[in-house]
Design a protein around this nucleic acid. Structure first.
Length: 191
DNA sequence: AACTTCGGCAACCGCAAGGTG
DNA sequence: CCACCTTGCGGTTGCCGAAGT
């Protein structure tokens, strides 16, 4: 994970003797930069070659996943809107766990994010709500009504994206303010 | 303050499908 | 047709911060 101070990751890598082998685990900021720069200059290609050519000690698979789920400029993270949530539930009811198919209907969303969202939010709340209500969707929406506490001020990481301040779990995690992919693209490191 | 438990998410793993020689 | 390689997908794991005790 990028948010992790890279020193910890590197220590882990060193202690496990992975320095000169294929690296696993959280991506460092340096690796992200290398990958972004390389793709910006050469485009996406055969991922194994890309990983080698870019000098990344990662598998092509890992590079692909990192790019698709996190680094792509059009990827949207967090702040799932009620509209998107309804869509996810609707499509899941229709298609089941076809996450990539569902993700294609939600521009900027990745299959991984939708899968995680479903499992951590909808599935759990749906299970809970089954004990008390016939309508899990309504249950979830009801839970999103503003509570008594103060409403934190949030801002969209990308201009133009809808913000729903009343969504209790739509807040950007604190570490998003550490550094973000948006920062990368605003820096345009490959220029 | 210290410890434990829980929730969210990034990343890995294994498998299947598709492409190529 | 077969073997090999790459990509894509879905399931699962492990880490970390937050919340609870």
């Amino acid at each position: 994970m990028v948010e992790e101070g890279n020193s910890n990751v590197e220590k882990r890598m060193e202690s496990s003797g992975e320095v000169d082998e294929v690296r696993k685990g959280p991506w460092t900021m340096e690796e992200d930069l290398i990958l972004i720069n390389y793709i910006a200059n050469h485009g996406e290609g055969v991922w194994n070659n890309l990983a080698r050519s870019a000098g990344l000690k990662r598998t092509g698979k890992s590079c692909r996943l990192r790019w698709l789920n996190y680094l792509r400029p059009d990827v949207r993270r967090g702040n799932i809107t009620p509209e998107e949530q309804f869509l996810i539930m609707d499509l899941h009811a229709r298609w089941g766990n076809r996450w990539s198919k569902i993700a294609r209907q939600l521009p900027g969303r990745t299959d991984n994010e939708i899968k995680n969202y479903w499992r951590t939010r909808i599935q759990k709340k749906g299970t809970k709500s089954c004990e008390s209500t016939e309508n899990p969707t309504q249950m979830i929406i009801d839970r999103r009504q503003p509570g008594p506490g103060p409403s934190p001020i949030i801002s969209s990481p990308q201009p133009g994206l809808p913000i729903h301040p009343d969504l209790t779990d739509a807040y950007f995690p604190p570490n998003d303010s550490f550094w973000t992919v948006e920062d990368f693209w605003s820096m345009q490191p490959f220029n």
